[in-house]
Design a protein around this nucleic acid. Structure first.
Length: 672
DNA sequence: GCGGATCAC
DNA sequence: TATGGTGATCCGC
């Protein structure tokens, strides 16, 4: 928490309270230079202040502040020996990562400029030169550059944008149009890389190594030519970034936006110079929260500082997270052309005016189930995990999931299980309901799909001209789990005294024969645009969607340093399996002899908790050998007492709350 | 396996 | 009047 300069801690928040409202709208984005950020921030604050949305944001910010405090406390606990140990750990990780650096590929990232707005301007040229936004009064998808001068930007509610720019013209979204133009650009991209990765309607990654070689072109010339082609053939401008990997290419395409390009040569020194001053927020995967934490706790602003503070990062984060941070510092990113990646979930959600009317909520749920089922059948998907998402009147998000023994895809099945999940939450005041299905049929957990198996030819969009479709394996009968789901429908309806009915609760008569479910995999097809909601730019291209990084803030749930995945390993020391049954030791003063987790000696409480964890584990194993299916923990007084005395109050409360919730659900599903 | 959180677009 | 929708991933439990 020491003297890191930070715009939000100027000390005069009492005079300018909007400074403490950490809205993302003022973060620097192309086209936002010269915007009076102070004024924008004030207006956004004043229009948001007091709203339910705002209150929720405040709640979230308080939580982040709390996390920052915890991190800082952990940091302060690190002793000199700890730090010198973790310096070694970090240096070793840096060496390992450096060894993976690949400078042999040339990646180009294309990013269309203000895509939706540009397309709308093409079809209505009178919009040219006027501030315009695509979206609605409640949400803006894209703003053109004229509007951005006023501070208007994507993800900002329209009514605030209108206050910032009274002459702002609103254009409703038209996804058919955007998809059409997107397809045109993709045909161009394909000439340069038949395997290009589309990450959304308006962005793509191209491996141009071969083109450069074959045509003896510099990457710069390829980028120029590609952008010229896009402009000639579509009338749209785009920006491009060229770099040795996708992580950096994405950063580079942003540098000379709009209608520009930037080339970072395949040279280690050039990369290191580039990252030495690069703000971490420019990196895909580092968002508002992560930036905030890294800045406040460690004083990290630039990528290079990730390396300098590597010892702290290795001490406080899991290995995968620390590795990501360190690789950012080194400017290392992915260079492979990823193999087939299938969709892992499919979902639908809708916002509506807040209601607590059970019948109305049920009606919404039924509509969603219908839509979701339609989408699933279009893609031939069946899944066995159903997740209900609710956003309460106070913007709090809750999810409730159930994993079934059989795969479902019909609206009847979806609604049947979704109703149960919803019922358990009533009464509740809700502004959004969502349904998601995951764990698809044919997704063998852990098993690799064999691409040599038979190709599926009945593509959803058979008219596509692009080649290089990936093969998918046949899905055989043994992929079905026999329909043994025990549907223990109890009549909660009466219990909870709700005045609306559940047509699916009474018996099994509506269960659908699983074998009737289509087994066609979602593979081989061309892009399948996700349903055209206002702002969705999500897009699927034969499962090879590419995010800026696979890192998705793993520090979200940080409570303690207690990582249970055997991370923070300095050496690849193999754990002696004979150790497992014995007492836990701290090897070299740092490493748990049972699971390999590292924890500095100064973390006394955490260590105690950790040893309790192993003790509990051991007892549980022993007990389960003798008493099958009984509550083990409660039988061990001694351990229980130790754990409760070691845990903080808040933790205890949390546990109690959770227990209560699980009990309710268990009761709901298990009791006859 | 579940729930919360973060991130991207 | 009024702050989105889709998909992915990680962590702790």
């Amino acid at each position: 928490m020491e003297g890191t300069s930070n715009s939000s801690s100027d000390g005069d928040d009492g005079v300018r309270p909007w400074h403490s409202y950490h809205t993302v709208y003022t973060s620097s984005k192309p086209g936002m230079q010269g915007v009076d950020k102070e004024k924008v921030q004030r207006i956004v604050y004043e229009m948001s202040k007091g709203s339910k949305y705002f209150q929720n944001e405040e709640r979230k910010e308080a939580f982040i502040t709390h996390k920052i405090h915890k991190f800082s406390t952990q940091c302060a606990k690190l002793t000199q020996p700890d730090l010198s140990h973790y310096r070694k750990v970090a240096d070793r990780r840096i060496l390992d990562l450096e060894a993976t650096r690949d400078l042999s590929r040339i990646w180009l990232h294309v990013d269309m400029d203000a895509f939706y707005a540009a397309v709308e301007t093409l079809s209505n040229p009178t919009l040219k030169g006027k501030p315009m936004a695509v979206g609605s009064m409640s949400m803006i998808c894209t703003a053109n550059y004229e509007a951005r001068k006023f501070g208007v930007r994507a993800a900002m509610p329209g009514f605030i944008a209108q206050r910032l720019c009274p002459d702002l013209i609103f254009i409703p979204t038209d996804f058919k149009k955007y998809t059409h133009y997107s397809d045109m650009t993709r045909k161009i991209f394909q000439r340069y890389d038949p395997n290009f990765l589309a990450s959304s309607l308006d962005e793509a990654y191209l491996d141009i190594t071969e083109v450069c070689k074959e045509r003896d072109f510099k990457s710069e010339e390829v980028a120029e030519e590609l952008r010229a082609s896009v402009y000639e053939e579509t009338g749209l401008t785009c920006s491009a970034g060229v770099a040795p990997n996708r992580l950096l290419a994405k950063v580079c395409s942003d540098i000379n936006k709009p209608n520009g390009q930037y080339v970072l040569p395949n040279d280690r020194m050039a990369v290191m110079t580039f990252t030495s001053s690069l703000p971490i927020r420019k990196i895909g995967g580092i968002g508002k929260v992560t930036e905030h934490i890294l800045k406040e706790v460690f004083g990290i602003n630039t990528c290079k500082q990730m390396l300098e503070k590597g010892s702290y990062l290795c001490a406080l984060f899991s290995q995968s997270t620390a590795d990501f941070f360190l690789s950012v510092g080194l400017g290392i990113g992915k260079t492979d052309s990823p193999q087939v990646r299938c969709r892992k979930s499919i979902s639908n959600e809708r916002t509506f005016s807040t209601t607590e009317d059970g019948a109305l909520l049920y009606k919404r749920l039924a509509e969603l189930a219908e839509m979701l089922s339609t989408d699933m059948q279009k893609e031939g998907l069946c899944g066995r995990t159903l997740t209900l998402k609710l956003k309460t009147a106070s913007f709090e998000v809750r999810t409730r999931a159930v994993t079934l023994q059989k795969y479902i895809s019909s609206s009847v099945d979806i609604l049947k299980h979704a109703s149960k999940l919803l019922k358990a939450e009533l009464p509740i005041s809700v502004r959004l309901i969502g349904l998601k299905v995951s764990q698809f049929n044919g997704e063998k957990s852990g098993a690799t799909l064999d691409p040599t198996q038979k190709t599926i030819t009945n593509f959803i969009n058979s008219g596509d001209t692009r080649g290089n479709y990936n093969s998918f394996p046949d899905v055989t009968d043994h992929d079905f789990i026999s329909d043994t789901e025990t549907d223990l429908s109890i009549d909660i309806q009466r219990t909870l005294q709700h005045d609306w009915t559940y047509p699916f609760d009474d018996n099994h008569s509506l269960d659908v024969d699983q074998q009737s479910c289509t087994v066609r995999k979602n593979g081989g097809e061309e892009e399948v645009p996700i349903s055209g909601n206002d702002a969705s730019i999500g897009y699927y291209r034969r499962g090879t969607e590419e995010l800026g990084s696979t890192f998705s803030s793993s520090i979200g749930q940080f409570e303690d340093i207690n990582v249970s995945d055997g991370s923070n390993l300095l050496e690849d020391e193999r754990l002696n399996s004979s150790c497992q049954e014995k007492t836990m030791l701290w090897l070299n003063d740092y490493k748990c002899s049972l699971c390999g987790i590292e924890m500095p000696p100064s973390f006394v409480e955490e260590r105690l908790e950790h040893s309790d964890f192993h003790l509990a584990e051991k007892l549980q194993k022993e007990e389960s050998r003798t008493h099958q299916g009984t509550y083990v923990l409660s039988q061990s007084r001694d351990l229980k007492d130790r754990i409760t005395t070691n845990q903080s109050k808040s933790k205890k409360q949390k546990l109690m709350q959770k227990e209560g919730r699980y009990m309710a659900l268990d009761y709901f599903f298990v009791k006859k």
